[in-house]
Write a protein that binds this DNA or RNA. Structure first.
Lengths: 226, 226
DNA sequence: CGAGCTGAATGATCAGAGTCAAGAATCGAG
DNA sequence: CTCGATTCTTGACTCTGATCATTCAGCTCG
């Protein structure tokens, strides 16, 4: 990806789509392309933060690591999503780690570059505020899910959510089941058992990373009854 | 609280402390004082959001409500804290509810007023971005706590955290034990038992809403062993 | 093609925390 | 000060989901 295509790429990211052309050019110019192989770390908890990221292609997982090394996936980043903005504003070390779960290409935007852009354009600031607010809302939803819902409810919720976008009846898991289980705050074993149960009782069909859902209502009903 | 004192109050809130005098005056002028009695709702999930709040005195709890009416406290707001900004930027209905747990006075700042101030002053925008980022970090920490820590660890963590500010060895619970239990994602019963256990094994002394911690290290050690 | 990995499924067991039910203590209004 | 209502504590029991251990399936690579 060279200069001009970086410009084009940024332009269709919601966050930057409001920017003026010359501002976009400036951002594109200073953005740094970084390639990561599957398994490589982008940053670890405690690392200093010098800017934000936008994922071009591949897949990144964001996770927290407990004292004993237990890892809990917070978020799975898809292409065109940005991450790391919040930490940049706080000027504190990363509270999480980021790791490529597939070969990935990211754009790194240095903090200085972004701060300048923010001062120049109050619309960008507004977008950014909305973006962080959205992130906050999502995280809040996660808290709600983790604390108020059972294992079955969490899985059903995830599946129905994933179905909303695509209009066929298939969910393609974005990562392996271990990682997804962690994202849903389940052990792989429990996740497997829940899928098993849903196959029997809600008629879903699991084939590797592909899950077919012939009847959404039936699946949805599993949430209500214990 | 009249106009001039509102100005003074806002001035010592970190978020607004960067504002110019005339901007502060404008904010103070348009801010609306609202009084709530203990138990009164400020807003409910689903209500439209027209601005943000700053708590002057009293105590507010922010909570999510599940389908069956189960309530989970997300945050306990103390004086000088602001809340509701994120929802304002999203222009969506509230995903949470807010209720006064003591007689309270809040300042309501209309969205329009704030948006104007943001456009006029990029420093305010920057502060606001930092503020939301901070909120995000806190919520992330909560996810970490809920998913990775046991009941005892959560309570010990809360106590040690509360001790950090005050330098005597006493924690004064800001709300009743039910509410605090919910904030820590525990049932009141479990919370009570954990306090019981910590009294026996870590030497803390519980007297109503006052908890004395003679030995922080001893308390801290409770986190590690099962 | 077979050895060795990694990811996934399954079974047996266990434990942490929730639920239900019953008292005790505390608070607040009159 | 007293009655009634919350709020808190304690006990007995249950249950969800974690842990541990094993087997199985699918790949990759020499």
């Amino acid at each position: 990806m060279s200069g001009p295509s970086t410009h084009a790429f940024l332009k269709h990211i919601p966050l930057f789509s409001v920017c003026h052309e010359d501002e976009l050019s400036r951002l594109a110019e200073r953005a740094i392309e970084q390639r990561y192989e599957k398994g490589q770390m982008l940053f670890q908890r405690g690392d200093p933060c010098q800017g934000m990221y936008v994922l071009v292609y591949g897949r990144i997982k964001i996770a927290i690591v407990a004292r004993q090394g237990t890892e809990k996936v917070i978020e799975i980043i898809h292409p065109s999503q940005s991450f790391g903005e919040a930490v940049m504003f706080l000027e504190q070390p990363y509270p999480v780690m980021a790791q490529a779960v597939e070969d990935s290409l990211v754009l790194f935007i240095p903090a200085e570059t972004l701060f300048t852009a923010l001062d120049d354009d109050s619309r960008l600031a507004r977008r950014m505020l909305a973006g962080l607010s959205m992130r906050l809302r999502t995280l809040l939803k996660d808290v709600e899910t983790y604390t108020l819902e059972s294992a079955v409810e969490r899985v059903v919720g995830y599946l129905l959510n994933s179905l909303e976008d695509s209009d066929d009846n298939v969910v393609n898991l974005p990562v392996n089941k271990q990682t997804l289980a962690s994202r849903l705050n389940l052990t792989p074993e429990t996740f497997s058992r829940v899928l098993q149960k849903l196959s029997e009782q809600a008629g879903i069909v699991v084939e590797g990373r592909e899950i077919r859902v012939p009847d959404r209502n039936k699946l949805s009903e599993m949430r209500n009854l214990a």
